[in-house]
């Protein structure tokens, strides 16, 4: 009888756990699958929280910090853009500020992006398009932009075609700021 009770408790526990399995796991973003999937990198090296509950706790903390740092990064990026535009129009007095500030902005942005990309998986994924899904798609654009901007900036002084290199840096920066602003705006949409 004792064993029957144990088996019953186990079945009930297993049932309650499986009820909270990740929904639509096949829709999990590729980067999350690579890191946190069943055979993901973090699972292989036994890194991260031991329970799903702690994973969710960590996820929420990481995403909240991502939100704060992303807002800060967006503000910094907007300031950097204004400095960049002044230089584009011929005022080079802000060159050293633009250079110095770029490292801080880039570091804040990358920390924020890491907090989002490395966060443990959500409890639910979906096939349909939502504001948060577009937010993630836009992140691939501004992340690529942020990776390229420092090299394109350095390339201006080294390039044989100064104007072309400057235009390229400016255009990539504009696309990056625009996609990041849209990405931020999308988070306030209800659906």
């Amino acid at each position: 009888m004792k064993y029957v009770t144990y088996i019953f408790i186990f079945i009930c526990f297993a049932k309650s756990q499986s009820d909270l399995d990740i929904q639509n796991i096949e829709q999990m973003p590729l980067h999350t699958k690579i890191l946190w999937g069943e055979n993901g990198f973090f699972r292989q090296i036994n890194f991260g929280p031991k329970t799903r509950k702690d994973e969710l706790k960590l996820r929420v903390k990481m995403l909240q910090n991502h939100q704060k740092l992303a807002l800060l990064s967006l503000g910094m990026l907007a300031y950097q853009s204004s400095l960049g535009y002044k230089m584009y129009e011929g005022d080079y007095s802000k060159l050293s500020s633009h250079r110095k500030f770029s490292t801080i902005t880039w570091s804040f942005y990358m920390t924020s992006a890491s907090l989002s990309y490395f966060a443990p998986p959500a409890q639910k994924y979906e096939k349909r398009v939502s504001s948060m899904k577009v937010h993630r798609w836009l992140s691939y654009i501004h992340f690529a932009g942020m990776m390229a901007i420092p090299f394109l900036g350095k390339n201006i002084s080294n390039s044989n075609d100064y104007d072309k290199a400057l235009r390229l840096h400016k255009n990539v920066a504009t696309i990056t700021v625009t996609s990041m602003s849209l990405s931020a705006l999308l988070t306030i949409l209800p659906y």
Binding site: L56, E126, S130, S131, Y191
Partner: peptide, 18 residues
């Protein structure tokens, strides 16, 4: 709620595992 990340958050804050 039509946004899966919000539903995930709800499940976390309501301790849906327990």
């Amino acid at each position: 709620s039509k946004v899966s990340s919000r539903d995930s958050n709800m499940l976390f804050y309501t301790d849906a595992i327990d």
